[in-house]
Design a protein around this nucleic acid. Structure first.
Lengths: 341, 341
DNA sequence: TTGTAGGCGTTATCAA
DNA sequence: TTGATAACGCCTACAA
């Protein structure tokens, strides 16, 4: 493919200037005489020259690179956030490097190492270990090690003893808005489906759920709180278990939207009219406006969230401190799936 | 954050060995005596050393990097493919660099340049210019320039005069399977919604649509072929226009699944029962199994497709030629949205 | 406005 | 089994 790598030396020789001058052209240094610049540019084009990124980088202490670790980009919740960050970073001349961890700790380790070796300007982290209520000692140590070299921004997660910047959505408030909405519709029997014990986003939602129920003197029925996971399939399974109970709730909250999609599926499979229940999800991913019935759910205020992420990245990169924690308020989006009891 | 960058020289000094030996440890060179290796490793840990990726790369002619350009990662069609490629590349020790072009030519140019400068091992390209029936001269030249340095793999696209590897799904066959399915259900009046004139995936589907209709002696009604775009919103608009026609079709094909999601929405908004029509999409993105009614659509055989992409990447990287074109057959997935006429 | 010289942190070559 | 030395390709004082 490539015969021989053309360097600035080749250009210099051909254009009868020094390599320094070629370099100046490359860096848009205004000191170069226009005619010289043109001569050099012409030669670069003629020889099909392309500067070597690695060599360039070697002269800088850090790269204009933002590492982004998340569990799974096919999940709209993550892709919506990632996409927006990439777009804005592009405008600022930053490069974003996406890595899917599948929330597997070893994979996360690999990527953390990679970003460190690439001298990333910062790392944005979602899911996985920062979502564990009890991460392992190793996981904590590793994060601390990385943090001593590369700033980390955690979205919807945190880690004890790790001094990262944290941005999170107010999940407790989100759950409160759901419960209050359902209560206002006359619901008294409410289920909570999905999630995994020990994952903070589940734990937070569950404890908030219990708290708000109590405030409204409503019963928390353990039979109606069913763990499973975070996927559509997990939603089916949870719904299936729920439908086997003697007494059924009138409203069902999903740990996220996907769980409810699964619940819909299960109802249809069992020929149970979906209108039998009121459903509310969490995340407001874009299919929630498309599924039928359209789903009442909690929106993360993606724009505010991403703004905050970018603000934090900026302040980190420009050395204005680490940008401390920030909590983003949620917004309840009411659609067809929740109705009067 | 980082006090001073620790280099192999620092390690060497501290461990009383030469930098060369430290380098050997880094590259797992078996020539190093075990005790020396341990000594060096200990120092590396002690000083919290992390090798500089850029310096490493500088000594190699090319990076173990696969560039991936696609229009929009929030579209499941792309994220499903990307995700799978990333996973497999990871296992082979390759790094994938994702870039969202939004199909904007200037953005594509930026990324093509970036990948060239990073000395990527190859570039996987989807959407944008490779999907234009008539790309501009500049676009073609640029691709040729890049191609002289970095091999390009095009998925579902091609470019005249650009000798890239091409992998594409058999869209013509996919459309055929849809039409034959609808015909077998007794449909005679079939619409085609969405897409943009001049984008090959639209043009291909349209011409195949016309051809197959002819074979079955069915009318192609221009009123029922409505361009718009490729999004959910585009689907609504196209459906709206269709519903204004005097005579309506009994079946509706979408250029992709998203178009049909939009058509569903429009029907609901206008209180028109969705069962009025049979709907068939194209792509089989995962929500198509979740929306209601679940959508009959054409699956790309993602696994076969990705296998082929990986095989091509391998053969390119290992210098076994450029891996020529390959066509992947599609599969019709029949669900609830298509019924007897 | 241009050029010389040294440095960035690794790896590869050749000796020892 | 180890070490000196020279690349790798670019950038940046400093000098001219």
């Amino acid at each position: 493919m490539n015969k021989k790598n053309i360097t600035i030396y080749d250009i210099a020789k051909e254009a009868n200037v020094s390599p320094t001058t070629v370099s100046r052209v490359l860096t848009n240094n205004p000191l170069v005489k226009e005619s010289t610049r043109q001569k050099v540019l012409a030669k670069m084009k003629e020889l099909d020259f392309s500067p070597n990124e690695a060599a360039r980088r070697l002269t800088k202490p850090q790269a204009n690179l933002i590492g982004f670790i998340l569990p799974d980009i096919t999940n709209p919740f993550f892709s919506q956030i990632y996409m927006e960050v990439e777009k804005r970073a592009f405008q600022k001349g930053y490069t974003v490097l996406l890595r899917n961890s599948m929330s597997i700790s070893e994979v996360e380790s690999t990527y953390l190492r990679e970003f460190t070796e690439r001298r990333a300007a910062c790392i944005v982290f979602m899911g996985g270990r920062i979502n564990k209520t009890k991460p392992s000692e190793d996981e904590i140590h590793e994060m601390q090690d990385v943090l001593s070299k590369v700033p980390i921004i955690m979205i919807n997660g945190k880690m004890k003893g790790v001094k990262s910047a944290n941005i999170r959505t107010n999940e407790e408030e989100g759950i409160r808005s759901i419960v209050e909405h359902l209560v206002s519709l006359g619901h008294k029997k409410i289920a909570l489906l999905g999630g995994v014990k020990g994952i903070s986003s589940s734990d937070n939602k569950l404890s908030s759920f219990k708290r708000v129920l109590k405030e409204y003197s409503l019963e928390f029925n353990e039979e109606w709180q069913i763990y499973s996971d975070f996927s559509v399939d997990a939603g089916r399974k949870a719904m299936k278990k729920l439908l086997e109970k003697e007494i059924l709730p009138s409203a069902i909250i999903g740990i996220n939207d996907l769980i409810i999609y699964g619940a819909f599926k299960e109802c249809r499979d069992q020929q149970i009219p979906i209108e039998t229940f009121s459903f509310v999800g969490f995340d407001d991913i874009y299919p929630s406006d498309i599924v039928h019935p359209s789903l009442t759910t909690v929106n993360h205020n993606y724009e505010v969230l991403v703004n905050e992420v970018m603000r934090t990245i900026d302040s980190i990169i420009n050395g204005k401190g680490n940008g401390k924690g920030k909590i983003i308020n949620t917004q309840l989006i009411i659609r067809e799936s929740s109705k009067e009891s």
